[in-house]
């Protein structure tokens, strides 16, 4: 494993961004991004789970029997998701009422299983932890960017605070609150992300 922590971090955050490069975790991206506060809690949940499950799987990688490795990975991921669910429920029950079903679905979020299988099961704990954090941050980066556009356009608010324009001239775009608005924004984010960072490596020399 030649990659340094910095390289791993940049890969997870941008070069192999889970949303616009790998197109993973799309379900929750569409579901929770109409309000920034919901998005932040969801990002916390995914980052917490990705980082700790990658770390745990990496620590145990030499002890996990190969034929049951995926069962063990799911069990570890599910345990962390249940902890996140309980923590969010205790910290903010109102937000939990809205994003609760999607928190449960973090278990099946392909980003986490993908990082566990592709990276953590073959690399050292510290690198895996960094990779988990970076993937979680890469996911969060796109979700927060989408939420920062959907909430003001759809509700005329940011983090629940009413923007001055809403009171004077701004008419809310209902479509931004609804799933079609999320599809449009995700497509635009993917387009921008892929244009800024093309997948094909540049030829040397």
């Amino acid at each position: 494993m030649a990659d340094t922590a910095k390289k791993i971090f940049i890969k997870g955050l941008w070069e192999e961004n889970p949303i616009f490069r790998q197109v993973l975790g799309v379900c929750s991206t569409l579901a929770v991004t109409n309000l920034l506060v919901n998005t932040l809690f969801m990002c916390f949940g995914v980052m917490f789970t990705t980082a700790l499950s990658s770390l745990t799987i990496s620590i145990l990688r030499n002890y996990i029997p190969r034929r049951i490795r995926m069962i063990v990975q799911v069990l570890i991921i599910a345990s962390y998701v249940m902890m996140v669910d309980i923590i969010i429920k205790a910290l903010n029950p109102d937000i939990h009422r809205f994003i609760g079903p999607y928190v449960g679905l973090i278990i099946t979020n392909c980003i986490i299983m993908g990082r566990a299988e592709a990276f953590a099961s073959q690399n050292r704990p510290w690198s895996s932890f960094i990779d988990g954090i970076a993937s979680g941050l890469g996911y969060s980066l796109i979700l927060v960017a989408i939420a920062l556009i959907r909430e003001p356009l759809g509700f005329g608010t940011i983090l629940g605070y009413v923007l001055p324009a809403r009171e004077v001239w701004w008419h809310q775009w209902t479509i931004m609150v609804m799933p079609p608005g999320a599809f449009f924004m995700l497509a635009i984010a993917t387009w921008i992300g892929r244009n800024l960072s093309p997948a094909t490596p540049k030829r040397q020399g």
Binding site: Y63, I64, P65, I68, I71, V72, L75, I76, S79, M82, M83, I86
Partner: peptide, 13 residues
């Protein structure tokens, strides 16, 4: 192995 994993994570939750 699976038994121990279940016990440890069950206790943590």
């Amino acid at each position: 192995f699976i038994f121990l994993i279940c016990v440890v994570f069950g206790l943590a939750i």
